[in-house]
Design a protein around this nucleic acid. Structure first.
Length: 431
DNA sequence: TCTGGGGTCCTAGGACCC
DNA sequence: TCTGGGGTCCTAGGACCC
């Protein structure tokens, strides 16, 4: 079968998943939060993106707008935090470093999840999982759940049980469980990794509502009515891996940067400063992966939730010739783009840019260019700027087109300190 | 009053080519 | 009157994830 790109040997995938990660990060430096309902908000304090179990029991949903649960959480003496990515990113880095010691083959899947390949380990997987869990808790202070199975999709299911069912206390090994089908029978299709609300509806319409029913479905039928995504899931449920461990991070194919504004923005100058700073952020990421972009896309929009206001949204793309990661050049293209789509008289809520058509810097070494552009000089300049900003802090050097006044035009009223990345924000302990 | 940000993969259909 | 067949590439939109 063409979907099966991976070897047919038995594998053991372990998924290590941090329990409500952002909340746990806040709790490490603020133990009073233990046992309290705690939520962490998205950028601009817009939506709930992490909830402690106590907050979940209050009925606060993932992605819920903050204003809809603000009263509830305050009434229950809960705590609220703005996202502190400097803190969460650093905590994640420490966890991933620690996990490297438990397997030579690891895929960092997201800020709070990693897959480990545990092939050929001839001792108790359950014990090993508990050792991982204990180590992360002791060294970093974050509680994790660990699930093991023969495919990634099954490992996801195992981890969910490890987390949900108190009996397993954070570790569940599906490879040695007596009856996998029994587990799958108790897993709803929409709880499978990769099946969202639309596939759920369509599968339900075909009479498939549990993971077991999908596993036992007729391949020909599924192939006819669904796409390759669902076929892969079907095989993965049967224990045939279709999703390999991706140890080497691939070059990002798109790099985006955008923000919603706290207050609606009308003035072109404010938008162009914002766009300029988005380009700065995205170009840094571009250079960090040693790549260059061929296209910059600029977009803006009014507030789609506000039905009483005239709506306008638009985007434009600019080809970058030659392929580049030189921030000032990309800024000037992006601002030309902005000029093209900007219309006077609208209250803009959000703007952003996307760098795309990204290639490795090695592939661009022999581009034909105008003699006036000295690519080597550009690269040296950006290298120096990046070095200084890493060494002395973000925005030590920045572009005047981003504006020199107050940087933040997004809200973050509940921000905790950068306990692990700034000397002057270290936790103070009185003794 | 207040609704995030950053990604990936897949597919259908159009344009184009020989 | 009769109007092929096979292929690639590109793009927009859908779906999903954390």
């Amino acid at each position: 079968v063409s979907y099966i790109k991976f070897s047919e040997n038995r594998h053991v995938f372990a998924l290590v998943d941090c329990n409500n990660f952002y909340v746990s990060c806040e709790r490490v430096f603020n133990p009073k939060l233990e046992g309290m309902p705690v939520i962490v908000l998205s950028n601009n304090d817009g939506c709930v993106v992490a909830r402690s179990s106590e907050a979940k029991s209050l009925g606060i949903q993932m992605g819920m707008p903050f204003f809809k649960c603000e009263k509830l959480i305050k009434k229950n003496k809960g705590a609220v935090f703005s996202s502190n990515y400097a803190l969460y990113g650093d905590m994640s880095f420490r966890i991933m470093q620690t996990l490297q010691k438990f397997s030579p083959n690891i895929e960092i899947y997201s800020i709070d999840e990693a897959f480990l390949l545990l092939d050929g380990f001839n001792f108790s997987l359950d014990e090993y999982g508990r050792k991982i869990r204990k180590t992360i808790k002791e060294h970093i202070g974050i509680p994790v759940s660990v699930g093991m199975a023969s495919t990634k999709t099954l490992a996801k299911i195992a981890t969910r049980i490890a987390k949900k069912d108190a009996f397993y206390d954070g570790v569940f090994d599906l490879t040695s469980y007596k009856d996998i089908d029994e587990v799958l029978e108790n897993t709803a299709v929409e709880d499978i990794w990769g099946i969202g609300k639309n596939y759920k509806r369509k599968l339900n319409d075909c009479g498939i509502s549990t993971a077991l029913e999908l596993k036992k479905s007729d391949e020909i039928f599924i192939k006819k009515h669904f796409n390759s995504t669902i076929m892969k899931i079907l095989y993965e449920l049967r224990g045939i891996p279709c999703l390999p461990l991706e140890e080497i991070p691939q070059l990002k194919k798109n790099i985006a940067s955008s923000r919603s504004f706290d207050e609606p923005v009308e003035a072109f100058e404010i938008l162009s400063k914002a766009i300029s700073s988005y380009v700065t952020i995205a170009s840094e990421k571009l250079r960090k992966q040693n790549s260059k972009a061929g296209i910059v896309l600029v977009y803006l929009m009014t507030n789609p939730y506000n039905k009483n206001e005239p709506q306008y949204s638009n985007y434009t793309i600019y080809r970058l010739i030659p392929y580049t990661s030189y921030t000032p050049f990309i800024i000037s293209c992006a601002i030309m783009g902005l000029k093209k789509i900007y219309k006077n008289g609208y209250r803009y809520k959000k703007a952003g840019i996307i760098l795309t058509d990204i290639v490795s810097s090695y592939q661009t070494r022999f581009q034909l260019t105008n003699d006036e552009i000295n690519i080597e000089d550009h690269e040296k300049v950006m290298k120096t700027v990046d070095y200084i900003n890493i060494r002395y802090g973000t925005d030590t050097i920045f572009f005047a087109s981003s504006g020199i006044g107050k940087k933040r035009n997004t809200r973050c009223n509940y921000l905790s300190k950068c306990f692990t990345t700034r000397w002057n924000e270290l936790l103070l302990v009185k003794a």
